[in-house]
């Protein structure tokens, strides 16, 4: 066993309760336990997180750049999905 190249892991940190986990970066670790611990040391040294996920980078499947159009264009032409689409008279609250 001469493999010293530990696999790469993607790190997701929940910065505080009520927010979702956000990609923070990546790191190397021999296994999941150490990936979690290393992530804690590296990405939450200043109390930046309350929860961490680690995922082997090799397990991530990504859309590719020029699939961008079919993947993301449709939502771009549905502006009615966004609240800013609607005009509300001034002074109307709680909407």
């Amino acid at each position: 066993m001469t493999n010293t190249d530990w696999p790469l892991w993607e790190v997701f940190v929940r910065s505080r309760r009520g927010l979702s986990h956000t990609h923070a970066g990546s790191l190397h670790a021999p296994d999941a336990e150490f990936a979690l611990r290393n992530a804690r040391d590296l990405y939450t040294r200043r109390g930046e997180g309350v929860s961490i996920w680690v995922v082997p980078s090799s397990a991530v499947t990504a859309s590719s750049p020029d699939e961008k159009d079919p993947f993301f264009e449709p939502s771009a032409d549905k502006p009615y999905r966004h609240p800013t689409f609607y005009e509300i008279p001034e002074g109307v609250k709680h909407l």
Binding site: W6, L27, H28, A29, F34, R37, N38, D41, L42, R45
Partner: peptide
Amino acid sequence: PVLEEEVALGN
């Protein structure tokens, strides 16, 4: 022995 461990031992 590895950079991650610099950070861990430092902590």
